[in-house]
Design a protein around this nucleic acid. Structure first.
Lengths: 339, 339
DNA sequence: CTGAAAGCGCTAACAT
DNA sequence: ATGTTAGCGCTTTCAG
C-alpha cells in the first residue's frame, strides 16, 4: 500500500506538504498542489480512512440502527426503500454506512458502545423498539442522531405524517359514502398512536361514531394478523363496509380472508392500505392506499444528520414532517354511484 | 473517552499489560487479567476499532456490494433477505457490515479503492453488473471476496441452483400435463443463462420442442416487462398453456395482463414464479414457484468469507450450490384432472 | 510475568 | 510557501 510518505519521497517534499496538497489546502502554491496530486494518482495512492479518523475524530461513516425482529425491518419495503434513499444521500455527501447492532463479537455491546467503537459520526435510528433503554441511551448521548417516525422529547426526527395520512383516508372513504369504517392498526408504537389519533379525529369531525369493535389490533407486515382481525370484523352483526389496514403488505391477509368468505373487493367490502409500496400498484385491484414519501424521508434523515455533524453551531433539533398522498386505487367502492 | 492509558494508570500497570489483559493474552497472571478487565468495565472502557485496525490491519468489517440500479437491489426481497441473513451471520462472528459504493465524496472511487480506503477485511459481492471492470478488478485483487450467483473462473461463490430450479419447474408442469410451456426470463445475466440452460435441458429430456416465440426476454423485478412479454405470448396463434416468469414480483405484471384478457389463472393459463419470497404465499392464488434458500445463501457467504479471512492457509476457492425447492401453489392447473 | 518503546498512516499546530 | 514534530489509541516485539 502506498502512503503519503512515498509520495513525499517521490516529489521531494515533506509529508506535511503532501497532506496539505491532497486536502486542497490553500497555503500551497497551485503548482505544487497539482504536481503532488498527479503523482499521487500515478502512484495509485488510496487514503487510509482509519488513520485519518484516528487523528481527526471524524470517520465520515454513519451508523444505522435497523433492527430486524420478526423480519419487519429490511424485509419491509417501507424501510428498505428508506434505507436505499438514505444510502444514496449519504454517499453523495461522502459518507459511508455501517450497520450498528448490539452484537459485535461474542461480547455484547450496547448500541452506544458499538457506535463509539466504530467512531461513527452519527446514527440514523429507524425500525427499532424506541422504548429500549439502549436506544434511549444512544439518543441521549453526545453522538448526533436522527430518528425516523419517532420523536424523543424534541430530538431531531423525520416523521411521516401519520395523523394526516389517516385523516385523508377516512375523509376519502367518507366521501365515497362509507360510514361503517373499521381500522385494523399495527402493534402499539408511536406511529400507531398517531394513526389512531388521525382516525378518531377525522371520525369526530365527520360526526361518525365508530363502535369499539371496529378498531382492532393487527401487526405491521404480518398478513396473518390482518387476516385474523378481518375475520373478527366480518363476523360482527353489523359489519363495516370499509376496512383500513396497517400496511400494504399485511392487507393481503385481510383480502384473502374477505375472499374466503365469498365476498368481493370492493363490491362487498372496501379496503385501504398504507405505505404505497410498489407492490400496491401491481396488485389487482390496485390498492387504495396512502403513499409515504420514502425517498424524502431517507434523504432528509441523511441531510439533517450530516448538517448536525458538519455545522453543529448552526444546529437545532427539529422535527420534519414528511407529507404523503392518497393513492386512488380500485379497492374502495363509491357507494354514491352505486345507488 | 477513556483509553487503555487511563486503565493502566488506575491499575498501576503499563499500557502493554492492559492491552494484553484485554485481549486475553496467556502470558499474564489470571489475577492481573481479571483485575484489569474489571477496572476497564467499571471505567466504561470502549475499544477504538480505528486505532486497532491501523495497527493490526484487521478491521473486522466486511464490505458489501449491493448496487441498486433500477431498484432491483435492496428493494428486491430476494436480495434484502440475503442481506439480512448475511448481516446476522457476520455479527455473530464479530464483524460489522459497511456498504461499498463507487462514490465516496465527490471524488469517485473504484470499488477496490473504496474497499481499501475503509480497510475492510473482505467483500461480499451481490447484485451488481458482474461484467463491470471495476467489479472484476476487486475480485482479482488481494482482498478476499465472495460472489453471489456468479462465478469468476473458480472464485469463491455461493450460487443458488438455477439450473435445477428451472428443471424442477418444467418437470412439474409437464407432469401436470402442460406441453406448451413458455418462459419469460430476466435480462442477460449469468443467472439467466443458467435458468435458460435448465429450461432447455428439461424440455429436451422430456422430448418437448419449444417454439422460439415461447421464450421471451423480460426483466427481474420489473412487472411491466413481464406484462409486455405476456401480451405477446397471449397474442400468438398457438398460445402457451403455462408461463414461467423471471420472479415472484415481476409475475404480477403477467398476471394482471392475463386477467385483462379476460383469462383466469390457472384455469385458462397457468403461471409459475421464481424465488419463493414471502409475498408468494400471501397472494391469491398462492404462487407455484421455486423457493430459493436465502437464509443459507447469506449465511454461507458470510461463513466462507470469514473462513478465508481468518484461516487463509486452509482456504481454497469453492463454489457452493444452494438447493431450493418447489413450492406447490395454486397457479398451475393440472390438465390431467381437468380431463 | 510485566514494561519500554516503536510505529500503524495521517493531520495540524507551530516553526521557518 | 513548505517543513518539523508531536501525537490520535492501540498492538507488539523485545528487554527485563
Amino acid at each position: 500500500m502506498i502512503k503519503i510518505k512515498d509520495i513525499a519521497a517521490k516529489c521531494g517534499v515533506s509529508i506535511a506538504t503532501v497532506s496539505k496538497a491532497l486536502n486542497g489546502s490553500h497555503e500551497l502554491s497551485s503548482e505544487t498542489t497539482l504536481m503532488i496530486c498527479e503523482t499521487a494518482k500515478e502512484m495509485g495512492y488510496i487514503p487510509n480512512a482509519n488513520a485519518r479518523t484516528l487523528k481527526t475524530n471524524r470517520s465520515y461513516n454513519i451508523g444505522i440502527l435497523f433492527v430486524d425482529h420478526t423480519a419487519s425491518g429490511l424485509q419491509h419495503e417501507y424501510f428498505s426503500s428508506i434505507l436505499n434513499s438514505l444510502k444514496v444521500s449519504c454517499e453523495k455527501n461522502g459518507y459511508d454506512i455501517t450497520f450498528i447492532s448490539d452484537t459485535v463479537s461474542k461480547n455484547a455491546m450496547s448500541y452506544y458502545e458499538h457506535a463509539k467503537y466504530r467512531n461513527v459520526d452519527g446514527v440514523v435510528i429507524a425500525c427499532v423498539d424506541f422504548k429500549n433503554p439502549d436506544v434511549i441511551r444512544l439518543v441521549e448521548s453526545e453522538i448526533p442522531t436522527v430518528t425516523i417516525d419517532y420523536v424523543y422529547n424534541g430530538s431531531t426526527a423525520i416523521i411521516s405524517d401519520n395523523v394526516s395520512g389517516l385523516e385523508s383516508i377516512v375523509k376519502y372513504v367518507y366521501e365515497c359514502g362509507h360510514r361503517k369504517i373499521a381500522f385494523i392498526h399495527g402493534e402499539d408504537t408511536d406511529v400507531t398512536t398517531k394513526r389512531l389519533a388521525g382516525f378518531h379525529k377525522a371520525c369526530a369531525e365527520l360526526g361518525l361514531t365508530i363502535p369499539k369493535d371496529y378498531v382492532k389490533t393487527g401487526s405491521y407486515h404480518v398478513a396473518a394478523a390482518s387476516g385474523h382481525a378481518t375475520r373478527e370484523l366480518l363476523s360482527l352483526k353489523d359489519r363495516p363496509t370499509c376496512i383500513i389496514y396497517p400496511d400494504d403488505y399485511s392487507i393481503l391477509g385481510g383480502m384473502t380472508e374477505i375472499e374466503k368468505h365469498g365476498l368481493s373487493i370492493p363490491n362487498d367490502i372496501s379496503v385501504v392500505g398504507y405505505d404505497g409500496i410498489n407492490l400496491s400498484r401491481l396488485l389487482r385491484p390496485v390498492l387504495t392506499t396512502y403513499v409515504q414519501d420514502t425517498e424524502a424521508i431517507g434523504r432528509l434523515a441523511a441531510e439533517k444528520l450530516i448538517a448536525e455533524i458538519e455545522t453543529p453551531k448552526m444546529f437545532f433539533p427539529e422535527q420534519v414532517i414528511v407529507a404523503g398522498k392518497l393513492q386512488l386505487g380500485d379497492t374502495v367502492l363509491s357507494l354514491k354511484n352505486a345507488k
